[in-house]
Write a protein that binds this DNA or RNA. Structure first.
Length: 159
DNA sequence: GCCAACGTTGGC
DNA sequence: GCCAACGTTGGC
């Protein structure tokens, strides 16, 4: 099992929105970056643990924990001409973009980006790398344990 | 709103 | 295959 951090704009889907969805599950639509797509396709597995991160908002940071509950499959929004994620070059026969389904596990206190940056234990965290723009990044097990236990105050890994 | 960094596009 | 122009991300 692997650990991930996935960015969502809370104006689009927040941790509370996720909790209130049917089955508390959302397809992680809208990824339009090949590196992130390939991570979903090649590295993610059902059962993987996810930090749900709020980005492009007043308080960026980790807002909760979720779980990957499906393999990667074609992102429906690429075929929808009315969607901002529509891709005219994608076809049903050869889709370009994929998503996984992600299910709510728990809301946590908001662990702010500034707080993550302040911790030497997290100095090598991928999401904190200079000018990182990947919306999906791997999290080392040691980083996951540190955040859930030391920063969130959970007694276990939170999953 | 600014801007740094990076990915993508397309002409050559 | 190079690379300039352009678009996007995302914190501040």
């Amino acid at each position: 099992m692997r650990y991930w951090l996935m960015k969502s704009e809370p104006d689009d889907v927040s941790i509370d929105d996720l909790a209130q969805r049917p089955d508390a599950t959302v397809p992680w639509y809208g990824v339009r970056n090949y590196q992130a797509r390939n991570l979903m396709r090649d590295q993610m597995s059902v059962g993987d643990a996810v930090f749900f991160y709020h980005s492009s908002c007043p308080q960026p940071g980790i807002a909760g924990i979720a779980r990957v509950v499906s393999p990667a499959y074609p992102d429906a929004t690429q075929f929808d001409a009315a969607s901002p994620y529509f891709d005219p070059k994608a076809t049903r026969e050869s889709p370009r973009w994929l998503n996984v389904d992600v299910r709510f596990v728990r809301k946590t206190r908001l662990v702010a980006l500034a707080e993550l940056r302040a911790r030497p234990e997290l100095a090598n965290m991928r999401v904190l790398a200079r000018a990182n723009r990947l919306s999906i990044t791997p999290v080392d097990p040691a980083e996951w344990h540190f955040i859930t236990r030391e920063l969130m105050g959970l007694e276990d890994d939170g999953i």
